[in-house]
Design a protein around this nucleic acid. Structure first.
Length: 620
DNA sequence: GGCACATTGAT
DNA sequence: TCAATGTGC
């Protein structure tokens, strides 16, 4: 498969650059692509399919369908701009694939746009280090956010821990988010005929039928995303403030999958909505102006989800507040199953869950209903629900979903309390059972945590040396070049101020930026490494869902709810966190100091008292 | 207008 | 729970 670089570099108009596409599947307002095109020389657009890297968050069926469609669209666009083709590679390790591609093409520059999920942060950093070591120039950019996470800090230079102040700050930054870039006028790929691509397979036979239905409702691809945006701006947006209570799709933007895959620039959305807002404001149309505020608010939540993920890389698997650490979640696969199948007996919940299964989409309001029911009535562990959303949603998004589920669970400083029930039908019932709860085992680290993890995963965690020297700093320098990771392994302590050169040096990283406590980053590093090790050995097939074995969790009586990926019946069963996420090692003692739970506890001094949960469940 | 009470909706 | 907004007198 490898082609000697000399054969590729032949004519040699000088440099050759790789643009590594990930969740930025667009040619418009794509800073990495723009930079490569501007640099002159030849541009090799590339995509690497390496889902095993995501560990348990292997993309679900509908997600994979979307990527597939979107890549075809992107490839066509690139060709129209003059690029030879989108080079695709299949590998369990994107870094290895990229290094190979660099050798295959003789590229001297690599460009990509930032991602903020923990796995990407670590992986991208590793890539940058390795490429740099080989003398390759690497530049990375912000294409996914209005502002980079490290740009938005409070007066003391600390990251915000609550959404509202965060978003207010975003809206009052001294400088606007960058204006969207136009697509490059021309992309010259040179001759890529000798540069092999792998066929990427995103669906298997059994999935084809279901996927065919998706095409009736959705059109992936950045140009279609743009059309959807225009349709929304000229249509439902004006009535958003009035209609958002309705749980139908007519009043929704339906942009979330486009945004997730980066087909749409959030900055473009932002600027266009603001322009609308200005117009309507001048017209004195208050409802319409309010509509814009509210819609931007939801853009802000997406923004905040990346912010949280960046500042707390384990937020997809660990509550940000520790006050529920010992909450006795129901480890009940039967409940989990009836929820998935929409057989709870609560019409709104059931309708939602069936719609989710059938269509891969759910109105935001209904997401709140079904997830509240899940967490507060069924009292199942939120991560199960989050994983199911991940597997079934067309717009499945780790950061956003983590934010949503943590919010519902009440484990965010600004979330609602766990004992707040949103489903009106249940409200009376739940109230009746409150206030005779038991003390929570706060601070007792000897207590056995409620959620057990499969034994073999546990082992893997514990083997990693837990006793880490204090990291006083994490180098935020350029998340740009996320310097946070491998350096952590070596317990480096210096704070790097080296910003990326050129384009991506726009952001000044506050010198006194909030630095993560050591534990957190250790987690990330361990997680990814654990994954990689495991994955390389286990998951080979492109399509095969990872099979996670849960020996000690499954209640014997519910064997039908077994763990395999069996479609409608089985759905997906709790797949635990990446191997390292034990969720309750001693190191989590740091939790409470972590994100200040103080503000939360101030407001909810009773939050350590719990209702009588078993009674509540019995009433099912 | 001003007060007491009801309603709404939270990220 | 609680603040912001609405309603009736």
């Amino acid at each position: 498969m490898s082609v000697s670089s000399s054969s590729m570099c032949g004519g040699d108009a000088g440099m050759r650059s790789i643009v590594w596409f990930r969740r930025d599947l667009r040619v418009e307002d794509n800073p990495a692509l723009a930079a490569a095109a501007r640099a002159g020389g030849e541009v090799v657009p590339a995509y690497v399919w390496s889902p095993e890297e995501e560990g348990p968050y292997f993309p679900g069926r509908v997600s994979r369908w979307w990527i597939n469609q979107s890549l075809k669209h992107l490839d066509a666009s690139l060709r129209r701009l003059g690029a030879g083709k989108l080079v695709t590679r299949r590998s369990p390790d994107a870094v290895v694939a990229l290094l190979q591609l660099v050798r295959d093409t003789g590229a001297t520059h690599v460009y990509f746009n930032h991602l903020y999920d923990p796995i990407s942060l670590v992986r991208d950093h590793r890539l940058k280090e390795m490429l740099t070591a080989e003398g390759i120039v690497v530049q990375s950019f912000n294409a996914d956010l209005l502002y980079e996470p490290w740009e938005v800090v409070d007066e003391e230079g600390q990251p915000f821990t609550m959404f509202e102040p965060f978003w207010n700050r975003c809206l009052s930054m001294p400088y606007d988010p960058p204006a969207p870039l136009l697509p490059p006028k021309k992309i010259n790929s040179g001759d890529l005929s000798m540069c092999p691509s792998d066929d990427l397979i995103f669906e298997d036979e059994s999935e084809r039928g279901s996927n065919a239905l998706l095409a009736r409702a959705w059109s992936p691809g950045w140009q279609n995303a743009d059309k959807a945006l225009t349709a929304f701006l000229n249509g439902p947006l004006i009535d958003y403030s009035v209609n958002r209570k309705k749980a139908d799709s007519a009043s929704t933007s339906l942009l979330s999958p486009h945004l997730h895959f980066g087909e749409l620039s959030v900055r473009k959305v932002f600027h266009l909505v603001r322009m609308k807002q200005l117009v309507w404001s001048n017209e004195g149309n208050q409802d319409a102006e309010e509509s814009c505020t509210l819609f931007l608010h939801s853009i802000g939540l997406r923004e905040y989800s990346r912010y949280l993920s960046f500042n707390h890389p384990c937020s997809h698997e660990r509550p940000l507040l520790a006050h529920l650490r010992f909450f006795p979640w129901m480890i009940n696969e039967c409940y989990f199953k009836i929820w998935r199948q929409g057989r709870t007996g609560y019409p709104l919940v059931d309708a939602g869950m069936r719609e989710l299964w059938a269509t891969g989409w759910l109105h935001d309001r209904i997401r709140v209903v079904v997830s509240s029911f899940f967490v507060k009535v069924l009292q199942l562990p939120w991560r199960w629900g989050m994983k199911y959303f991940w597997d079934t949603l067309l717009d499945a998004d780790l950061e956003s979903d983590a934010l949503g589920w943590q919010y519902i669970t009440g484990s965010l400083p600004d979330g609602r309390e766990l004992d707040r029930i949103d489903n009106p039908q249940r409200e009376a019932a739940s109230r009746a059972t409150m206030n005779n709860g038991t003390e929570e085992g706060l601070g007792d680290s000897s207590e056995v945590p409620p959620i057990d993890f499969p034994q073999e995963l546990q082992m893997e965690v514990d083997r990693q040396a837990p006793d880490n020297t204090l990291m006083t700093a994490r180098r935020l320098g350029d998340q740009m070049v996320p310097t946070m990771t491998s350096s952590l392994n070596r317990a480096e302590t210096e704070v790097s101020a080296d910003l990326g050169n050129g384009e991506d040096s726009r952001a000044e990283v506050p010198s006194d930026a909030h630095f993560e406590p050591p534990v957190e980053m250790e987690e990330v590093v361990r997680n990814t490494e654990g994954n990689a090790a495991r994955i390389n050995g286990v998951h080979r097939d492109i399509i095969q869902q990872p099979q996670h074995h849960r020996r000690d969790v499954l209640a014997p009586s519910v064997s039908e709810a077994s763990s395999s990926w069996t479609g409608r019946e089985g759905g997906v069963v709790p797949v635990w966190s990446p191997p390292a996420a034990s969720g309750h090692s001693e190191t989590f003692a740091a939790d409470e100091a972590d994100i200040s739970s103080r503000s939360y506890l101030d407001r909810h001094p009773q939050s350590h008292r719990m209702m009588n949960w078993s009674q509540l469940s019995q009433s099912l």
